[in-house]
Nucleic acid binder design. Sequence first.
DNA 1: CCCACAGTACACCGATCGGTAAAGGAGTGT
DNA 2: ACACTCCTTTACCGATCGGTGTACTGTGGG
Lengths: 196, 196
Amino acid sequence: MSETKPMTAAGHRILGAAGELFYGRGITAVGVDLIAEHSGVTKRTLYNQFGSKDQLVVAYLEEREQRWQLLVRETIAAAASPIEAVLAPLEALRAWNQNNPRGCAFINALAELPDPTHPAHVVATQEKQWLIDLFRELAAAAGCSAPDTLATRLLVLHEGALVTQQLSLDTLSVSIELARGLVRAATSTESQTASA
Amino acid sequence: MSETKPMTAAGHRILGAAGELFYGRGITAVGVDLIAEHSGVTKRTLYNQFGSKDQLVVAYLEEREQRWQLLVRETIAAAASPIEAVLAPLEALRAWNQNNPRGCAFINALAELPDPTHPAHVVATQEKQWLIDLFRELAAAAGCSAPDTLATRLLVLHEGALVTQQLSLDTLSVSIELARGLVRAATSTESQTASA
DNA sequence: CCCACAGTACACCGATCGGTAAAGGAGTGT
DNA sequence: ACACTCCTTTACCGATCGGTGTACTGTGGG
């Protein structure tokens, strides 16, 4: 869409600083002055590059979206089987969470920007839509008879693991283990998927 | 703890307005002036009652915590069996989400207030600790052989359902259905709980 | 050579932020 | 009558908010 713009060196630094600060301290709590200072750039340059704070927030979310989706795709490509591929988004969280201990940036953004018409809000919801669509496609490719149901279940597990990460418990392993059982059950022959 | 204070009429109005505004628009995005205006109260009164914005945020979270825990306890008391009681926190979300479409106030607060030493942060994490402890007790009371594992799984499902509620999908029914299967499996005789 | 462009430096804007000062009105219990 | 608490009004504080204007510097390409 708009990533065709080459983006200057200063632009990258701004986006990098904005990423750390927005994710680490919250979007509303971080001012443009702080971002400019952390990226060693004048506020004027920031506004020349991004136009407004809102647009910078959108760029921040889009950048994270790209990195995350790339990681997921790589994990899918490295999966040993179609069944393991369904679990790839969950498995990708293992590495992702190492550097992102503050939960899901999109969920956090939704918490801070309730206005559904806000462009950043739209980006965040689209990301989740992408994920459930991906789960559905992977489930179908793995031969699941009810891809919709499995995809919704996996999305719940995914978000649950993400959001409970901030607590000390190791919920990711539990979620993956549980998800693996669900995928196995949903792709084996047919019939029982744990009640109806 | 501190709810022994009777709290004046103005105090209740302030807390009510703060609840709606903080939950609906985000904590950082809402200023004390706005809360005072919405509760028909002077800013001076607000500060006489709560001392600071941070303490008001804490009071806001504690009030929600009390309401939520009360609802959960009522749902547990109304459960038809110990096994159904384990699902009570999930079932309670059915009614709760009607009036709280913006996800979990505690998770949202954690997203906005990253500082672990912030009193509101502490309240939010304590709430989640309460929930997983409750799940464990309920699981044990229902005769589950591995209450820890089941509790963690149910917590993931709970948080997943809560956070995906903001998207259009009806994930709550899916989560409850899935949770019911897990509880049944974990409480029936013994052996297989879907791999180890 | 010269122009366009990216970036800097710095001052400035109105608005809002969380929080306070001082003084007084209204109701209650003693 | 008294003091006490609750709440009000109005004004104010320094700091920060997102955002702009203007003039200057450096650099690279035609």
